[in-house]
Design a protein around this nucleic acid. Structure first.
Length: 792
DNA sequence: GCTTGGACTTAGGAGGATTAGG
DNA sequence: CCTAATCCTCCTAAGTCCAAGC
């Protein structure tokens, strides 16, 4: 069942579209829609949605709890917790979106600006454009250059992008398809390790042991600690245990102790790590053999890679966020459940011994090779071709061509929805407002979701509690999006958008009610299709991502920079896109430590700089007046730290001397010379002690006597060098900090037209493999033949 | 029409492989 | 050379969108 809006049925009765031609006036009371408790979701879940930002979470729960049931809409503007955010206000063009999330975000507001500022100039004939697109589309395709012959000579026949046939029936995906079926995970091999129940080891039948093992392997992970996960797991586990008549019967999760199994699997892991070279080699061989057998197929006579040919092994369903079914047992898939798709003339692969295939179909309008139903969510699983296959490549190309088509239409489309923001019909207003958000903020469409899924939203499914307003036109968004990733941004929106959202948030404003209460993604997409063939909500994401990337890349690339500098620019442009699309990753567990290390490095440089400065003063005391900056203490350099740092330096020095001494002696031995006496080493080490004392004295007096051969000039040069190093290290520091929770991969793989990257590499002489891994080069091979001047 | 589910893209994390740094 | 950090691949969940089915 769908998790339809609580008031879905009632909605009609009091908010019928036919009655709202009078615009804002129709938002009347009818407070009867009582929201099911199930709706009591909060946005603060999901540990990985960065604890740091959690603290200032302005989302629904806290405020709605306290807020009066029917508050004046104005109250939402002046909510206390938001007040301080006003600092983020920007007095700039209304369309500029200032995104304010984590510490550093200046770059991203820049990009939004550019995305936006082009609009509004040309005035165009709306309808005639549509026709034009088609023609241009065809032109663009022919522009794709002939392959410069490269390593792939014999693969020329595989270069589907060279002979793209026009007007081909798009629904037919292949004329011939042959493959070897799918690979099933090996049967379970019992290990006999006993879990404990009520403190005592308990014997389990293999089928039960296997499931206990699933949980045991996850012990001490977030999943195993999650109560929902435990509950779902235990329900399935105890049922199976009961069917196998364990004694005693397993009835209480609390009495279960899976640690023996946990330890067993840990040991297995360790074993795997310590495999000998030969064993590793053998494992590789095995994998290669499987790849050959199942990983390849023939599509229209061409050899192509299959993606996920392994049937998913049984295990515990690991739903993300607050998935109600997380922890449920995912059963082993039997061949009888699996259907294969191949051509009529293709030999039918043999099913595993003693088994039969569920069905054999010959559907040339489908790209899947195999499919089955999964038991937890009753969803369909597929085996598809790999990302580098022609089929995937073609749809990738099509996707980006649609996004490019949007680029040509975007101006009038934007003008259109901006005008619609004031439409009398509430439905149209909501639609326009949603389009605005999807376009400007790159939100996802936001389909309705079922009750037995995690409560996450996209644009059309936003609820009141996800949006708060702050006068004059600031909007705070805080909700869980796909994969329960938190979307938390503060943006400046168009005045009319602000007014509309305030209007949508009017009574009966209750937590749980939809912001866009009469808009569905299907209707939105239908409208988009009318504006442009192939246009759907997700195209805006693709378009904005690729456009932003190209734009930023152009601006950031230093024309005469080194490759490394250019790559930095590339990654920064990439990051802008990732931030736009809210692609996040968990902050790695070592992050804080790594930052600390780099900070220490900066401090070490500062320490050296301090020494140099003082040395200058010893050389030339007069400079105290002329260059007072020499007297200024370095920031962030505490006495305690210096002392410790020096101790470390000395310790390192001693280590170094010892190592060198031993190495020298080894050499002498080889040369049949006498080893140096141990006394020699002692003397060397004594020098270090002397140096340590000197340093202690310098610390006390603050005077650093010049080293041999030191001059003011040399010291100045040193200081300059240190300045540079400090700046550079600081840069990596901010870079790292900014990157810690931003994942660049997703946008690179799915949103950024690879031809932009290919052209850029060509233009700036950057080797392709610096930006695309082998798999990505393979996935994007259709895009690698563009000229340096290709434009998205 | 409206719902349901099929088919395909998009998503982050796990864990192994590789590279960098000490 | 060894270890830690980073990169890359695999895995499968979770979206989007559309068309079938009522």
């Amino acid at each position: 069942m769908k998790r339809t809006r609580p008031s879905a049925a009632k909605r009609k009765s009091y908010k019928d579209d036919s009655s709202d031609s009078d615009g804002e006036g129709d938002f009347r009371g009818s407070s009867d829609s009582d929201v099911p408790l199930a709706r009591k979701k909060t946005a603060d879940s999901k540990a990985k949605t960065n604890g740091s930002s959690k603290t200032n979470g302005t989302n629904g729960t806290s405020r709605t709890k306290a807020a009066p049931k029917y508050k004046e809409d104005s109250s939402s503007d002046s909510d206390a917790p938001l007040a301080k955010k006003a600092a983020s206000k920007k007095t700039s063009t209304p369309t500029k979106t200032k995104v304010k999330t984590e510490p550093v975000s200046s770059s991203k507001s820049k990009q939004s600006t550019t995305t936006i500022k082009k609009r509004g100039k040309e005035d165009v004939d709306d309808k005639s454009k549509i026709k034009k697109v088609k023609k241009e589309e065809a032109d663009d395709k022919s522009k794709v250059k002939k392959v410069k012959k490269e390593e792939d000579e014999d693969e020329d026949a595989d270069a589907w992008w060279l002979n793209q046939k026009e007007n081909e029936d798009e629904s037919v995906k292949w004329t011939s398809l042959k493959h070897n079926g799918v690979y099933f995970p090996p049967e379970y091999v019992p290990h006999g390790v006993k879990m404990k129940y009520d403190g005592k080891p308990i014997t389990l039948a293999p089928a039960v042991e296997e499931i206990a093992g699933f949980f045991g392997a996850l012990l001490f992970t977030e999943h195993a600690e999650n109560p929902t996960f435990q509950e779902n797991f235990f329900k399935d586990f105890s049922k199976i245990a009961k069917a196998h008549k364990t004694s005693p019967e397993i009835t209480s999760f609390k009495k279960c102790d899976f640690t023996p199994m946990y330890e067993y699997y840990q040991a297995e892991k360790e074993k795997r790590k310590n495999m000998t070279k030969e064993q590793k080699e053998a494992a590789k061989e095995e994998k290669l053999a499987l790849d050959e057998m199942y990983g390849t197929c023939y599509l229209d006579g061409r050899k192509e890679k299959v993606g996920n040919y392994r049937i998913e092994p049984p295990g515990l369903f690991r739903g993300r966020g607050k998935h109600p079914k997380t922890g449920c047992l995912k059963l082993r898939v039997q061949p009888e459940q699996v259907s294969l798709n191949l051509s009529k003339d293709a030999p039918i692969p043999k099913a595993p011994a003693g088994h039969k295939w569920g069905a054999i179909v010959h559907d040339d309008t489908k790209t899947w090779l195999a499919t089955w139903k999964e038991n937890v969510n009753d969803s369909t699983k597929y085996v598809f071709l790999a990302a580098g296959s022609s089929l995937k490549g073609q749809s990738d190309l099509k996707k980006f061509e649609t996004a490019r088509a949007l680029k040509k239409e975007i101006d009038w489309i934007r003008r259109g929805y901006m005008a619609d923001l004031k439409d009398k019909k509430m439905f149209i207003r909501q639609r326009a407002t949603a389009m605005y958000l999807i376009d400007r903020l790159a939100l996802r469409a936001g389909n309705e979701k079922g009750e037995d899924e995690a409560d996450t939203v996209g644009c059309c499914s936003l609820r009141f509690e996800h949006v708060t307003l702050e006068k004059p036109n600031i909007m705070h968004l805080d909700f869980l999006g796909k994969d329960s990733i938190r979307y938390q941004k503060t943006v400046e929106v168009d005045e009319q958008v602000f007014k509309n959202i305030r209007l949508f948030k009017r009574e009966p404003a209750q937590e749980g009610d939809d912001l866009f209460d009469r808009l569905k993604t299907s209707e939105l997409n239908k409208h988009l299709q009318n504006l442009m063939k192939g246009l759907t909500a997700k195209v805006f994401r693709t378009y904005n991502a690729s456009f932003t990337f190209q734009d930023q890349l152009e601006k950031k690339t230093p024309k005469d920079g080194t490759i490394a500098e250019k790559l930095l620019a590339y990654n920064r442009a990439n990051r802008d896109v990732a931030i736009l699309c809210n692609h996040q990753r968990a902050v790695s567990k070592g992050h804080a430590g790594q930052i600390g290390k780099i900070e220490d490095k900066v401090r070490a440089y500062k320490y050296q700089r301090m020494k140099q400065k003082k040395m200058i003063l010893s050389l030339e005391p007069k400079l105290k007046k002329k260059r007072p900056e020499l007297l200024e203490p370095e920031s962030d350099l505490e006495d305690d730290w210096i002392e410790e740092h020096e101790a470390q330096l000395m310790e390192k020095e001693r280590e170094r001397i010892k190592a060198k001494f031993e190495k020298d002696n080894l050499k002498r031995k080889e040369n049949k010379e006498k080893p140096m006496p141990a006394g020699e080493l002692k003397d060397l080490l004594k020098e270090v002690d002397v140096r340590a004392k000197e340093l202690a004295k310098e610390r006390k007096t603050g005077v650093v006597p010049p080293t041999r051969g030191a001059t003011v000039e040399k010291c100045n040069a040193q200081i300059l060098k240190l300045d540079e190093r400090i700046a550079a290290t600081r840069l990596t520091l901010t870079d790292k900090e900014e990157n810690k929770q931003t994942a660049l991969g997703t946008s690179k793989i799915n949103y950024i037209d690879p031809r932009i990257s290919a052209a850029w590499c060509e233009k700036h002489n950057v080797p392709l493999d610096k930006i695309f891994t082998k798999t990505l080069r393979d996935k994007f091979k259709w895009a690698m033949t563009v000229d340096a001047d290709w434009e998205f």
